[in-house]
Every structure is written in C-alpha cells, then in structure tokens.
Design a binder for these strands. Sequence first.
DNA 1: GCGACTTTGTGCCTGTGTTCACGAATGGCT
DNA 2: AGCCATTCGTGAACACAGGCACAAAGTCGC
Lengths: 267, 267
Amino acid sequence: MSVATAPVGCDPTAEAKRVTSQVGGGRVNSRARAIPEATVARLAVYLRVLSGLEERGEHPGSTISSTELAQSTGVNSAKLRKDLSFLGSYGIRGVGYDVATLTDQISRTLGAHRAHRVALVGLGNLGQALAGYPGFSGRGFVISALFDADPERIGRDVSGLRIEDIHDARAICRLTGVTIGVIATPASAAQQVADILVGAGIRSILNFAPGVLNVPDDVEVRHVDLSLQLQILAFHEAHRTPAAASAAAAGGQLPTPAQPAALAVRS
Amino acid sequence: MSVATAPVGCDPTAEAKRVTSQVGGGRVNSRARAIPEATVARLAVYLRVLSGLEERGEHPGSTISSTELAQSTGVNSAKLRKDLSFLGSYGIRGVGYDVATLTDQISRTLGAHRAHRVALVGLGNLGQALAGYPGFSGRGFVISALFDADPERIGRDVSGLRIEDIHDARAICRLTGVTIGVIATPASAAQQVADILVGAGIRSILNFAPGVLNVPDDVEVRHVDLSLQLQILAFHEAHRTPAAASAAAAGGQLPTPAQPAALAVRS
DNA sequence: GCGACTTTGTGCCTGTGTTCACGAATGGCT
DNA sequence: AGCCATTCGTGAACACAGGCACAAAGTCGC
C-alpha cells in the first residue's frame, strides 16, 4: 500500500499542489483555473468577514472595495484582488464588489454552500470543546457522529449527539455519509484512529493530535498543532533584538531564568 | 499608536521576516544567521519527534540519519538537513546526528530550554481544554495565570490555578512575569483582551479566536484558526478530480488496515 | 456628452522556500 | 594503510507567493 506522509505543521504552503477550480455557476470562470493553497486559506477569511458584515447589515451600499475588505482582513489590497480574481471577475471597477455576490461566489468555491458531514473522534477536553465550537457546527459543517474508545464515555451525550464506539465507525460513517474526520485523541491513538477512519471511507482528516499520520495518497490530512504556534512564539521571544527586549538578550547566553520570584497565581 | 495588522490564518510564511539566530553555545555557528520562519516551524516538529525517541530510548546507537528523521517527521531529507544546518554543523558525515546533541541544540534555538510563562484568557470549553492540554503545560511552557471576564468563572479553579478577573491582568501579568498571552475567548471579546494584554506588557499573543487582531508593531500575534483548516479540507473535498472521487468512493474495499484489537482512545 | 475620479484586474519583479544533485567528510573493513 | 559505503552540507535551479504600479473600465458631476 502506498503511504503518504502527512505534511508537517499547519503550513498551508507545505504541499504546493494546485486544485483546478471547476465551480458550477461561475460562467466567467469557464476555464479551469488553479487556485493556490495560500489563496484558499485567505478566501475562508474573507468569507467570514463578509458574512459578519452581511449579518450585521453593516454595509450600506451593499458593495465593498478591495481596500476596505483588505483592511478588515489584514491583507494587502492587491493580494486580495488577486485572490478574488481566481473566482472570476465579480468586481465592478470604480465601485467595488457586491457583498452578496462575493459571499456567494466564495462560498461556492470553498464548498461551503453545501453541508459537510463531520465525524469527531476523541471526546476528551479538546474534543468536547470542538463539539460545541460555533465555528465548527456553523459554516456549513455538521457534526454527524461522535466516537471514542473509552467505555466511560460511550453512550453519553455531547451537544445532543451520542458518543459511539470507535469500532462501529465503519458502519456509522457509511450510514451517515460522513466525509470528513476530526481526530482529537491523544497522540498515541491518532494513527490507529486514522486507519479506522480511512477504512471507513473518509478521505479528509483534520488532526489535532501532535505527530505525523500515515495515510494513503488519496486521503488529505491537515494538521492543527496547538503547541507548535506557541513554540514559534517562544522562538521569537528568545530571539528578540536586544534593543526590543533586554530580557531576551540575557536568555541568549545562558539558560538563566530571568524572573526567579513570583511563581503562579495560586488560589 | 502604530497599529500592525496581524497575519491571516496560521500560515507561517505570511510574514517573511527572518530572525537573526544568536544562540549561545553553538561555537560553529558563530556568525549570526537568519532562520526562515518555515524552518522554525519544522524545528519544533523535529524536536518533538526526537524527544519521543529519546524518552522511549528507542534509538540504539544514539544517532539518527537525516533520511530516518525525515521519514518520521514527514519531510524531505534535504530540507531537513538544510533546516538543521541553520543551527550549525552538528551532524557527522557517514553517521548521522547525535540524538542528544541535536535535541539540545534545537531546544536551545527554539528557546525551549527555559520556561516561558503563559497567561490564558477565556476559560470556556476551549480555554479549559487548553489549560489541561499536555502539549501546553509540557514543552517548557508554564501556564501561570488564568483570566476571564465572567463573574461566574472568576474565582473557580482550573488545573490547580485560580481564574482571575481579566481587569486585574495588568498587575498580575507584571507580577508573575508572563510573556506570552493566549486568547481563547469568543471573537467578540478578542480585541479587547488583546488590548489589555498589550497594556500589561505582553509582546507575544496566540489567538484562538476567529478574526483579526490589531496590535502594535512590536507585538507578535499568531493565529490558530480551528475552522479554517476544516474549510480548506472542504475546498479540496469539493474540488476532487472526478477520477479521484470515484476511486475514493469505492475506496472502502481496498486499503483496509488491520483493525487493531487493543485500542486506547483515552485521555 | 465629457472629463475627472475611483477601483478593478494583472503584468512584472523580487524575495522565499523547496528540491535536486553532487562534493566533502567520516567510519568501517580488508 | 587504503578503499568503499554512507551520510552530511550546500550550490544551483526551480516553483511559488507577495507587492508595486499601471492600464482598463466603470461611476459621478456638470
């Protein structure tokens, strides 16, 4: 069996594959176009901001300019226009983008206009948090199944869904038409769970467990590493220019803990 | 006040700043060298894998080759060697890298050899999960303070730490020498919390709330967007080539891995 | 209708990151 | 000692992403 090694970290640019965009409905974008991975990630951000605007009915003229949206999302306006140009020409020169149209187009491109059924495996602290996370159950994702291996947890209800035995995943996933699996187990179980999910026909996995997953080539794994970002912060903290931080300068030479006193805010 | 817009998503390459590496101890690497952001992210992964090997005492000769480590971490071996070369020449040609030395060097470079004090804001589901997350409290990070704005939560204990009022953050953060702040609040509160943290002297923020944070230039923000990765998966799901999609539809029968009997998904 | 102004869409350039391929160094074996 | 297999370190080529700047295309005022 051919085994693909999952990309490291949560870097969207790790694998630079392009995906031909063949969105139905966009007649301007008739020819298939490759959308860069980095652009896809930003489109999701644009979509969120736009949805927010629309919901709050904030934008008076119902159009928004690239500079305006760029500012709201923290990107360069040229980059934003280039990103949007991958969807086709939905902007009006001299005016901007129609918020409703743009929202719809991005939604369509991202596949957010239809619901994706998600199976969540591992109902520990993190798993339960994810089960109730608004950004998960909203945004076109429907958590359709919960799994765990702990008999203590199996049978309990979380967010109105019953926790099933992970060993029944194969049958349940096929029955419910789940296409995306989320792994929120400890690292030690992640690979086994991934194997089961793959066996159940799932082709997209979001992995919150640290470590690398081995899956077949046609299964896409994305990794959210909670501590990775923290370590990157720590790196920058340790390497601050001496001008910016005097404390970091001392840390460079010896592992001297800068603050010896006042440990924690204990009750 | 000069305001920088935080980079979008969790893309490490979003801002391409280099950091001069002036790690004490590495005499081979005497001249300051710029370590790319992407490399830093991978170094953290290497470190985790190496630590795992070391703890389990798995590696017999106490050395490991680049190909071997590359396979364990899911990267190209050349890339791995180039990454490690930023630390200096700690490999031995014809042999590999000494696991202990390598671990130590990466640790040092990442600033993981000394403890970083972290303040966690927002003790909802996600916040509580983070408070108990082993990859957080381990790996050189010490959660030193918990904050929330909800009177219901203030005063309660989570993971042996008392939840304090966010409005006392300024005093408490300075007292405890916290340098990193983690925001796990709803999006609506994130900006206010960020302002408070910045006011308390914190210069590194890990943000789990969706949306963009505005902070001064000298404050670094990293963003973990839980739903972003899911949306990227959905995009790929929606844009699968028809050939691959049909192959995957029948994918149940073929690559079924050995269903493991002993499976422990506990936490 | 026409000119001024605004905003999009994009060509081009630069810098970053990844991969290949190969020389250099090292340990083991005869 | 000398040769050989192995593995590191890195130069060069390539792919990708980001940003500037400008032409094209539209609106608005008169």
